[in-house]
Design a protein around this nucleic acid. Structure first.
Length: 282
DNA sequence: TACTAACCTGTACG
DNA sequence: ACGTACAGGTTAG
């Protein structure tokens, strides 16, 4: 059963920390997604692409009703789901998603966005679409051929070498992100963790937002805070960070608690807690 | 295995 | 104005 627009809130979905390269003009949303641009209109609901290929960027093909029914068994998630109807997980270009979250480490959303924009302007292709100019996200090969010096000009800081490493690993085919889509969570994660700059949290973001792993539940400062605040009876989290071993243990418990669509639960909880603390989405 | 410090950079706040 | 703290973490020791 395909989703109609009423089950997709474009504004809230884009403003939930999963996608960074977007612009809002005249009530329409433009999202740079790899070598393509998504244009989304809320009412009447319509999603088009620059490439003219059909893409379910908002995961319109998910059975949203079924997923909601599953994840709202949890009262806190239910509260958030009522407050944010139509909040979705996006299906992003894997390479862009990968670089986006490598860049996100120890940083904030406006800063991540700025760096990605600089990467696009410096290495991406300029295109004209709907009477506006856009820079597409650079291909893996283009970034693999860049120098640390050039990447530093995009203000990546110490992350420049990570971006280079990841781009080379992917451009060479050593790791094929499309192949990871077909794998189970554990197997895909193991491969992602081989790339320097990708730890547990970043790997989970990449898998949830671009590799079809709805059971991925990124554990960052916010979600850990959420587990402490609302689920102290189930999860014994005392610090701001957790060790690798603990991360795996907690993820296992997360699946037991929230089910196979735990990633969706995470998005609702994350959105709610960030808004509660009046954090910026841009 | 668990724990810490160091890390680039822009922005917010005093 | 100018210093300091902090941000969707990861790595090295």
């Amino acid at each position: 059963m395909p989703d109609s627009g009423i089950h997709i809130n474009i504004r809230e979905t884009i403003n939930s920390g999963q996608v960074f390269l977007w612009e809002n003009y005249d009530d329409r949303w433009f999202v740079v997604d790899g070598h393509d641009i998504i244009i989304a209109n809320q009412t009447p609901f319509e999603v088009l692409t620059f490439s003219k290929r059909s893409k379910n960027f908002f995961r319109q093909d998910d059975n949203y009703g079924k997923i909601l029914k599953e994840i709202t068994k949890d009262k806190i998630v239910k509260k958030s789901a009522i407050h944010y109807p139509g909040l979705r997980i996006t299906r992003q270009d894997p390479f862009q998603c990968c670089i986006s979250f490598i860049i996100s480490s120890n940083s904030n959303i406006p800063n991540i966005r700025m760096r990605l924009q600089k990467l696009c302007r410096k290495f991406g292709t300029k295109v004209r679409f709907q009477k506006r100019d856009f820079f597409l996200f650079p291909e893996p090969k283009r970034l693999a051929d860049a120098t640390v010096q050039e990447l530093n000009e995009c203000k990546l800081g110490y992350r420049s070498k990570y971006v280079l490493d990841a781009s080379r690993t992917i451009a060479s085919g050593e790791i094929d992100l499309e192949e990871l889509k077909k794998m189970k969570y554990d197997q895909a994660k193991e491969l992602l963790l081989e790339i320097s700059g990708i730890g547990d949290k970043v790997a989970d973001c990449i898998m949830l937002f671009s590799l079809e792993k709805l059971d991925a539940f990124p554990l960052d400062t916010w979600t850990l805070k959420i587990l402490q605040k609302y689920y102290s009876d189930i999860f014994c989290i005392d610090k701001k960070t957790i060790s690798k071993k603990r991360y795996e243990d907690v993820h296992q418990k997360i699946i037991e608690r929230f089910g196979k669509y735990a990633g969706y639960s995470q998005q609702f909880l994350y959105k709610m807690e960030r808004d509660l603390n009046e954090k910026k989405w841009l």
